[in-house]
Design a protein around this nucleic acid. Structure first.
Length: 489
RNA sequence: CGGGGUGUAGCGCAGCCCGGUUAGCGCGCGUCGUUCGGGACGACGAGGUCGGGAGUUCAAAUCUCCCCACCCCGACCA
């Protein structure tokens, strides 16, 4: 247990906030619902972005930038879309301030906009207004554009990284000539997201389809990656939508096909956000703080010198610097903590910050030509000869990466229950928590009833699994889908 | 928007009932010294419109009224 961090078992929500603040990841901004991402948190986000951006580009997409401000009228074009987002749109109504007679700064009533603009809660509408201009022929397709931007969705209740009024994300918007191609794109991106989560964030995810009530406003189908946090709740970590022709119809985006016929284009959109940082925190963190996967950790190794005085520091430096230089040349991210805190303080501090490996170098090590390594994932202490460090540390980092994934996977498996009776379902949701795998008759009525009873929702439909042997856990009718139920963030 | 609560140093709080010295404590912060293999210690020090306004009073952090802000719990969301 760590000083100043509420244990997970006592209050998971407090644990989360404590860790985010004390590890220096983020802080609350001055406007309710806003978040300041501090450098340590931002490096983490950059390290998540970097591999995803690379994968997005490798699959033929290009980055661009569309404006933050969107005419209000655009939102009325797609009926479902506006229904979904209307309640959380920030609206710009005026363009300037002025100083009134009492010296107070007020909104200048004379600067009221003719047409109000909204701050993007997502960019489908602006993007499709532009695609209309750019797409005429099948030769213009596909359009494969992504953007890394901030968006605003006005929220009542906020939690750092998980739910804030403004957040950062990546949103891809593609246009295709056929429905098949759009579906293929939607799934391709889902695959990238899964790969990002599992290979880089070390978070195992389920992939599936959202139910009608949970899908994106304006989509035909929403695919998602869903992860289990350490409090056994589900976190939607990414979504990929097949928008069909809904937006091309709303914005009248057509193209001429090879047969000289006019057709509406097919669309997709997909995104992951800074919420992934929250996912990393909650999928791996323990009572000591963060546990970061080496691939995305801001620092992979922290070197803590143990020394009595200045000359001791010098000896440490002389002993270990060549090793550190060599590792840096191999691309290992290393932080050397020369601050004048005590070693014990530093151990706790860097454990809280989740650094995968700690390297301790003190007089005893120098004398024996060794160094002490401590793994953050297992707490295991390893003493190694100095001359094998450069070779061993990268291997250990790989092991830790894998170790975190394996732990998370084992945890999810242990907490996923296949059930066939509703009483069993309720018992597990109330008393044990976790994911429930069961049959669903596909009706909205069943979905609503279960939500009312238990607050659990369908996290995803396992569309690849065959439901023919199953019955609906609620109605007892033959199951239309195999689904995963859980309480969600 | 309905219910509950809190505003006092950077953070966390005590003091308020029952008005009365110079408003206090812990952490943090600064300087110096001793320390340093699991959250060190000592000395000295800096830091306050007591959320804001009005009122009662010889006297208000403390009593009265108004306002403001934020937090927690219930209907939405990546």
């Amino acid at each position: 247990m760590s000083k100043g961090i509420t244990p997970q078992s006592q209050n998971y929500a407090s644990w989360y906030t404590d860790v985010v603040k004390q590890a220096g990841l983020a802080d609350y901004g001055p406007v309710k619902g806003t978040m300041v991402i501090r450098p340590y948190g931002f490096i983490l986000w950059e390290n998540i972005k970097e591999p995803l951006d690379r994968m997005i580009k490798e699959t033929g997409h290009v980055n661009a930038y569309f404006p933050l401000l969107i005419p209000k009228s655009f939102f009325s074009k797609e009926a479902e879309h506006i229904k979904g987002f209307a309640k959380e749109c920030a609206v710009v109504t005026h363009t300037r301030l002025k100083i009134d007679d009492e010296g107070e700064i007020i909104v200048d009533p004379e600067s009221k906009l003719e047409e109000e603009v909204i701050i993007r809660p997502t960019s489908e509408t602006v993007i499709w207004s532009m695609y209309k201009k750019w797409i005429q022929s099948y030769r213009d397709l596909p359009v494969l554009i992504n953007q890394w931007v901030n968006i605003v969705r006005w929220e009542m209740r906020t939690r750092l990284f998980l739910r804030t009024s403004e957040f950062l994300w990546q949103e891809g918007h593609t246009a295709h000539a056929t429905a098949e191609e759009a579906e293929e794109e939607t799934l391709k991106i889902l695959g990238l997201y899964k790969k990002l989560a599992e290979e880089f964030l070390a978070i195992p995810v389920l992939t599936g389809l959202k139910s009608e009530s949970e899908k994106f406003a304006g989509a035909e189908q929403t695919y998602c990656i869903e992860a289990m946090m350490r409090d056994k709740r589900a976190l939607q970590a990414g979504t990929s939508h097949n928008l069909g022709q809904n937006f091309s119809r709303a914005f009248n985006v057509t193209f001429q096909n090879r047969d000289n016929q006019e057709e509406l284009v097919f669309a997709t959109s997909w995104g992951v956000s800074t919420r992934l940082v929250g996912a990393v925190i909650m999928a791996h963190g323990d009572d000591k703080g963060l546990r970061l996967p080496p691939k995305i950790a801001p620092y992979q190794v922290v070197m803590v010198p143990i020394s009595r005085d200045e000359s001791g520091c010098l000896k440490v430096r002389k002993f270990i610097s060549p090793v550190l230089d060599e590792m840096r040349a191999k691309g290992v991210r290393i932080y050397e903590d020369w601050s004048d805190n005590t070693p014990g303080f530093k151990f706790n501090e860097w454990e809280m910050k989740g650094v995968p490996l700690r390297l301790e170098v003190g007089p005893r090590d120098i004398e024996g030509g060794k160094a002490v390594l401590v793994r953050r994932d297992t707490g295991e202490k390893i003493i190694l000869e100095k001359n094998v460090l450069t070779e061993q540390i990268p291997l250990l980092l790989e092991e830790i990466q894998k170790g975190l994934f394996d732990q998370a996977l084992a945890f999810r498996q242990k907490n996923t229950h296949t059930v066939s009776s509703y009483s069993n379902f309720k018992d597990i949701i109330e008393n044990k928590g976790g994911f429930i795998r069961c049959g669903w008759d596909g009706t909205q009525k069943t979905e609503m009833k279960i939500k009312e009873d238990t607050k659990a929702t369908i996290r995803c439909i396992l569309y690849k699994e065959d439901p023919s042997e199953m019955r609906c856990v609620y109605s007892g009718n033959s199951a239309k889908h195999v689904v995963i139920y859980g309480k969600a963030y």
